[in-house]
Computed example of a mutant assay.
Amino acid sequence: MLPALNMAGDVLLTDKVSPRRGWVGPGDVVLLLSPEDPRKIVAKRVLGMEGDEVTYPVDAGNSDATKTVVVS
């Protein structure tokens, strides 16, 4: 899968109001501090909101097995 953002040349506009007002939904890109290294900012795409069921491949390269979780 190709990255959603190009490291060389893409421009990203952000705002701090949307998350505080609950205006974030599936498909949106959010920026957050990395849990592994709090000095880094990472970008992630929202797949589901609280109460949604999200299904994802367990090992996309080697099998068709999937796992479904409920977002909490």
Results as ranks from 00 to 15, higher is better:
Gly27Glu: 04
Val11Ala: 08
Pro19Arg: 08
Asn6Pro: 02
Val46Thr: 10
Asn6Gln: 10
Met7Gln: 08
Leu5Phe: 11
Arg21Met: 13
Val71Phe: 06
Ser18Trp: 01
Ala4Ile: 03
Leu5Met: 05
Ser72Trp: 07
Ile41Thr: 15
Met7Cys: 02
Lys40Phe: 06
Lys40Gly: 00
Glu53Asp: 13
Leu2Gly: 03
Ser18Thr: 13
Pro3Asn: 13
Ser18Met: 08
Val11Thr: 14
Glu50Gly: 06
Val58Cys: 09
Thr14His: 07
Val42Gln: 06
Ser18Phe: 05
Val54Pro: 08
Ala8Asp: 14
Ser63Trp: 02
Pro38Gln: 09
Met1Asn: 05
Thr68Ile: 10
Ile41Arg: 09
Thr14Trp: 02
Ile41Phe: 01
Val42Cys: 04
Asp52Met: 00
Ala8Gly: 06
Leu33Glu: 12
Leu33Ala: 15
Val17Pro: 00
Pro35Ala: 08
Ser63Tyr: 02
Leu5Gln: 00
Met49Phe: 01
Tyr56Ser: 12
Gly61His: 09
Val30Ile: 15
Leu47Val: 15
Asp37His: 15
Leu47Ile: 13
Asp59Val: 09
Leu13Glu: 12
Leu5Pro: 00
Gly22Asn: 06
Gly22Lys: 06
Lys67Phe: 03
Pro57Ser: 04
Met49Tyr: 01
Val11Cys: 01
Glu50Cys: 05
Pro35Asn: 10
Met49His: 09
Thr66Asp: 02
Val17Arg: 14
Gly51Lys: 11
Met49Ala: 14
Asp15Arg: 04
Lys16Met: 04
Val70Asn: 04
Gly51Ile: 08
Lys16Cys: 02
Asp28Pro: 12
Met1Arg: 01
Arg39Phe: 00
Gly61Ala: 15
Asn62Gln: 12
Val29Asn: 06
Leu47Gln: 13
Pro26Ala: 15
Ser18Val: 01
Arg39Pro: 00
Gly48Val: 06
Glu53Met: 13
Asn6Ser: 14
Thr68Val: 08
Val54Gln: 12
Val42Leu: 14
Asp52Ser: 01
Asp37Met: 07
Val24Gly: 03
Leu47Cys: 13
Gly48Arg: 09
Leu5Gly: 00
Gly22Met: 04
Asp10Ile: 05
Val58Gln: 13
Val11Leu: 06
Asn6Ala: 11
Asn62Trp: 10
Val69Thr: 07
Leu33Asp: 14
Leu31Trp: 03
Thr14Leu: 12
Asn62Tyr: 12
Asp10Phe: 07
Lys40Tyr: 08
Ala4His: 03
Val70Gly: 02
Gly27Trp: 01
Asp10Lys: 03
Leu2Tyr: 09
Lys67Gln: 15
Val29Ile: 15
Ala43Leu: 04
Met1Gln: 04
Val30Glu: 01
Gly51Val: 04
Val71Ala: 08
Leu32Val: 04
Ala60Met: 05
Val30Pro: 04
Tyr56Gly: 06
Asn62Ile: 05
Ala60Ile: 09
Lys44Asn: 07
Gly51Cys: 10
Ala8Cys: 09
Thr14Gly: 10
Arg45Asp: 01
Ala65Met: 07
Asp64Ala: 12
Ser34Ala: 10
Val58Ser: 10
Asp59Glu: 11
Lys67Met: 11
Gly27Pro: 06
Leu31Pro: 02
